[in-house]
């Protein structure tokens, strides 16, 4: 078990620097349900971003719907701002295959045409199946195929590494 708060702290400075380097004065954070929303809200506070948080539930955009059906825990996506021309920072807890990010990008573009999208993740555990990389990473973990990393929260936020049966 690891404390996720310190990792979020480690994400804040690089994200702030990256936004400054790109001349992005008014970014909007968009968290991917559920863990991504918790992290995005904390980053929003640390970076002092006034704009409200966006929340994406990508359940209806998954590429494995034909295998898993409807996610019972699905929640509404909410982007309480105009996406057109905005600089967005997509936030998720764990980056693995890249499929979730692919789905999130597709959903974002159904709301409008953002000026840019950055990706910030708490943990990059490798194993990419798509050409997707994060701009900001809290920690890189080397995990076995039978290990799973999960963020539990919202209070306290903790990273849990578990053995799973394959």
């Amino acid at each position: 078990m690891r404390d996720a708060e310190s990792l979020i702290e480690a994400m804040a400075d690089p994200l702030r620097d990256l936004l400054a380097a790109r001349g992005i004065a008014e970014p909007v954070l968009v968290g991917i349900h559920t863990g991504g929303v918790w992290i995005a809200e904390r980053l929003r506070q640390r970076l002092g971003i006034a704009a409200p948080l966006g929340q994406l539930d990508i359940s209806f955009y998954r590429d494995d719907f034909s295998r898993i059906g409807v996610n019972r825990q699905v929640r509404p996506s909410e982007l309480p701002f105009d996406v057109d021309g905005r600089h967005l920072v997509l936030v998720d807890d764990v980056l693995n295959t890249g499929r979730t990010v692919r789905a999130a990008l597709n959903e974002l573009f159904d709301y409008g045409r953002p000026a840019s999208v950055l990706l910030a993740v708490l943990v990059d555990r490798g194993g990419r199946q798509l050409p997707i990389e994060a701009n900001v990473v809290g920690a890189r973990l080397k995990l076995m195929a039978d290990q799973e990393v999960q963020l539990t929260g919202p209070e306290p936020l903790q990273l849990v590494i578990q053995q799973i049966t394959l």
Binding site: F60, Y61, F65, V83, N106, F109, D110, Y111, G112
Partner: peptide, 8 residues
Amino acid sequence: RRVKKLPT
């Protein structure tokens, strides 16, 4: 939304 469609 702008695009009133899901890929489901």
